[in-house]
């Protein structure tokens, strides 16, 4: 029997493999810090209305990084949190960003008021770049979703989705996987049917693996002691699948290697994008999830799984 790479060693590695930044293609902004209007069970950085570990970012803080990113040839911009629309300057930040390149916002959809949807449409119509909105849901029924994300969340999120659709967007519905592989098809179909019943006829759905960090550790069992990425595991592995091979994330506390690890001190690479071009040793257990699941953050989505 052949041991899988994950099981081929019996103690945590002493030296962690260094991963170089190939090119800074994707620049993330932790634009609402760790502040969110809700507090989901599985949130991998434990965001909530009171988690001030990372604060909201201002347009003035973001602007110099946009300028620096152009010189580095960045390809796409991503905005996350927390809930980006907690940030009062979010729409101005997007307007500025769309002068540089395409932008994607990861949102729970709940704060997208009619006025915000209208302004988003105006921004999207007045740039040659794509403005993508990814709306997180955790279930295709109110009961399933709200069990994880909190009471009343489903209705507000779906209202946001409907508004976006009415304003010319095709939001990408993002779902964190909390079910077994065998149920994949049924779950995707459930989401497709839900969206169609809300008038959204061209559903785009994206499944993310669940990261065992933050509150998710309490929800499931956390990582086994020896789940690390080792140098041997990276031989013959396409490292370009890892976010840290082509991305960095800017926060109000500096530039970090990736959005997943902002709470790990080792992941802070410096104050500027230039500082953050250095390599990073894959020393956290979350790196192991990335290793297994690859590019969890690009925009590619699934239509429906009827093939």
């Amino acid at each position: 029997m052949e041991a899988s790479p994950a099981l081929s060693y019996t103690s945590p590695p002493e030296v962690h493999p260094e991963l170089h930044l190939d090119a800074l293609d994707n620049l993330w902004f932790q634009v609402s810090g760790t502040l969110c209007n809700i507090a989901c069970d599985h949130c991998f950085i434990s965001c909530s209305p009171r988690n001030h570990s990372f604060e909201l970012m201002t347009l003035a803080q973001i602007e110099p990084h946009l300028e620096a990113s152009a010189a580095l040839g960045v390809k796409e911009y991503y905005f996350t949190g927390g809930e980006p629309f907690m940030n009062k300057e979010m729409l101005d930040i997007l307007e500025r960003t769309l002068r540089y390149g395409p932008a994607t916002v990861l949102t729970n959809g709940m704060l997208i008021t009619p006025a915000k949807a209208a302004r988003l449409q105006h921004l999207a119509d007045n740039t040659r770049y794509s403005l993508e909105l990814r709306v997180s849901l955790d279930g295709y029924t109110e009961a399933m979703n709200d069990a994880i994300r909190g009471k009343g969340v489903f209705k507000k999120a779906m209202a946001g989705v409907e508004r976006l659709y009415a304003h010319g967007f095709l939001p990408i519905i993002t779902v964190t996987k909390t079910w077994e592989d065998a149920e994949d098809e049924a779950v995707l179909q459930g989401f497709a049917d839900l969206l169609k019943s809300h008038g959204y006829a061209r559903p785009r759905i994206k499944i993310l693996p669940s990261l065992k960090l933050g509150k998710e550790i309490a929800r499931t069992q956390g990582y086994d002691r020896y789940e690390y990425v080792t140098a041997e595991m990276l031989e013959e592995y396409d490292c370009s699948q890892l976010i840290c091979a082509n991305s960095r994330v800017v926060t109000n506390r500096g530039v970090y290697v990736c959005p997943i690890l902002i709470e790990s001190p080792s992941a802070r690479l410096g104050d500027t994008l230039e500082d953050a071009k250095r390599s990073y040793a894959l020393q956290e257990q979350a790196c192991y999830t990335c290793y297994l699941y690859g590019a969890i953050c690009s925009n590619f989505s699934s239509g429906k799984r009827d093939a």
Partner: peptide
Amino acid sequence: LWESTTPAHFLEKL
């Protein structure tokens, strides 16, 4: 390389 996701500064770098 799509029109809507390829910034000019990225092409300059290429």
